[in-house]
């Protein structure tokens, strides 16, 4: 847990070592710093919801947890092993313990749904083709898709169906940790609840989950523990980027105005700030033009 977080984390077995540790993680793309000094301990079987407004680095944090984004400082540890010290081969093996549900499902366009879901099994196991087909069919049943989708290409499916197919692919290798990147974004309320129910179903099978979302309904339904990230450019120097770390009940009671604003979905002074930013950008552009002239 982040030592500087303003709230207490969800109660869990203090004896058990954390399954995933994010240790003072910072990520920078060129001159742009996205994450700064993030520390999170994730216990086995826990469902952590990562909240935050767009652009605060939620997806980058998720990708850093699986080694898709290399940290500029700090580290991520899985069962005590450092990801940054792993070779490509070790990292590839580690990823078989993870399932990643992407925001847009990220199914391979050129493959059918059956080939997509079977891909991890074909890559990492030597199971006979008939057995692979059986596992794929059961996964498709599990996420509530009709078997007729197996022969279809991703482009022929609706957004909700693609997300469920993406979840089926993520579960193919029976992962220990499942990472969800905005799993309900762009879905209607019913399909959103279907996805939430599927996340709960996956959680019941003692899978550890990290759900990145800005949907409070999803957070309330699936989360054991919630952390909230704040965009770095809105923070004052020295302020921690994790502005909340605690249970859902604690989230509702949080006195932090930044947390309250997000939970209650209020624009506050944000529109005014955006207009000021725009005015500053326009002034800067005009100044540059004058200099050029």
């Amino acid at each position: 847990m982040n030592a500087t977080a303003p709230a207490t984390a969800a109660p869990r077995d203090a004896e058990a070592p954390p399954l995933v540790q994010v240790d003072s993680l910072s990520v920078r793309f060129g001159s742009q710093e996205v994450l700064r000094d993030i520390t999170i301990d994730l216990a086995a079987g826990e469902t952590l919801v990562v909240l935050g407004e767009s652009g605060c680095g939620k997806t980058v944090l998720l990708k850093a947890m699986i080694g898709l984004v290399r940290p500029s400082a700090g580290d991520v540890l899985f069962e005590g092993r450092s990801l940054s010290q792993m070779s490509d081969r070790q990292l590839a093996h580690l990823r078989t313990h993870y399932g990643f549900v992407f925001q847009g499902a990220a199914l391979f366009d050129s493959l059918t749904i059956e080939e997509n879901v079977a891909f991890p099994l074909r890559e990492h196991t030597r199971l006979p083709a008939t057995e692979v087909r059986g596992i794929v069919a059961s996964l498709i049943d599990e996420v509530g898709l009709p078997r007729s989708v197996l022969v279809k290409k991703p482009v022929e499916l609706s957004g909700g169906m693609r997300k469920r197919a993406g979840l089926a692919r993520a579960l193919a290798l029976e992962p220990t940790v499942v990472l969800y990147d905005e799993p309900t974004t762009g879905l209607d309320p019913i399909m959103t609840d279907v996805i939430n129910e599927l996340i709960l179903r996956v959680r019941r099978s003692t899978v550890t989950s990290v759900v990145v979302t800005h949907d409070m309904n999803t957070a309330r339904k699936v989360g054991d523990r919630v952390i909230m990230l704040y965009p770095l450019f809105r923070l004052r120097p020295g302020e921690p980027q994790i502005v909340f770390d605690g249970t859902l009940a604690e989230l509702d009671r949080s006195p932090d105005p930044r947390v309250r604003q997000f939970v209650e979905g209020r624009a506050g002074t944000r529109l005014m700030e955006l207009q000021e930013e725009q005015a500053r950008a326009n002034d800067s552009a005009a100044h540059d033009e004058e200099e050029l002239a």
Binding site: A106, L107, F108, E123
Partner: peptide, 11 residues
């Protein structure tokens, strides 16, 4: 569309 990331995430 993150398909390359998906490949990597699968190992």
């Amino acid at each position: 569309t993150e398909q390359i990331d998906a490949l990597e995430s699968i190992g």
